[in-house]
Amino acid sequence: MGQLLTDIFFFNDRPRFERVGFLIFILIILIFPWIVTSAYGRAVAIKFLLFALFGLGWNLIGGYGGQVDLGQAKNVGFGAYATALMIVWWKVPFWLTIIPGMIIAAAESFAIAYPMFRLKGHYFAIATLCVALVWKELFIFWDWTGGARGVEIPIRSGADFVYMQFNSPIYYHYFIFFLFLLQFFFMNWFRKSKLGYAVQAVRDNEEAAASLGINVYRTKVVNYTITGGLGALGGSFMAVYYLYIDPDAVMPLDLSILIAMTVMVGGAGSIWGPIIGAAILIPLDMYLGAWLGAQKRLGIDFMVYAVIMMVIAAKEPRGIWGIIERKIKKETR
């Protein structure tokens, strides 16, 4: 038990500058809403934490698993719809909708993973994309999901911890930070667990992994299933944060791409990568996008993204964390 807690909450295996950096990060997030009081600034921070959360989950398959999944938005959608529909239909308290959402997403991922992992590389990536697009078309097509009109969660008055509705963004800030930390510590445990090592071994060399007693196929399926469940967690938050969801908001291709990009830019396969990636891309998106939108110059923000993406792909596939790590290593030598 003591060992389990240590594995979850400590980073003894990481260098000291990382541990100090993480502490500073936590402090900044904790005091952030008291320093930045503008609604927009706070919204940026919340979106940053949301995408860091998404990134941590996607990192499981994309970073540790080395498989490019371009369909994570479907899992976000499952989570968001599970929460929204359960609240609208049966008035289920928010907290009880999280787990069903994650289970639905995980179950779908598990079912689809079975045929999916007969594929590799590009074939796999395109297949994930296709599956997510089919789900989105179905959610628009079906009536019971609200179709293209989406689902609206009725607004309550005052702060409500049962349905997680608040007037002040400060609540949402700490709420998403709490979810983020949950997932972060899960990932911290995961990367050191037997499963975590099996996933990385399979990524690096499938044949060698099998020779060490690892069931390659099962490892991939389990990993993909967990990734699906984690995607739904952020989706549930989106439902109560925006109070209105539709397939274009919670299941679009752009969301899948942005999640994957966050991790790639920050550094795939490292625990800090998704946080760094989200810290760069989300403010860039929100400030540059808003500023350019005001100038009626649509598209430049995404062009900047695209250039970052191409440069990372050509120069440093291990992302910004890869650059930092190399710099540090050089200095300590």
């Binding site: 590009h122 995404f302 695209a306 792909a313 596939p317």
Partner: peptide
């Protein structure tokens, strides 16, 4: 580069051209 880099490279190209047209 690794497969991931290839994918993201052409993906970046796609986004660039798409939003260049948008602009």
């Amino acid at each position: 580069g690794p497969m991931v880099a290839q994918l993201f490279g052409t993906f970046g190209l796609m986004l660039f051209l798409r939003y260049l047209a948008m602009y």
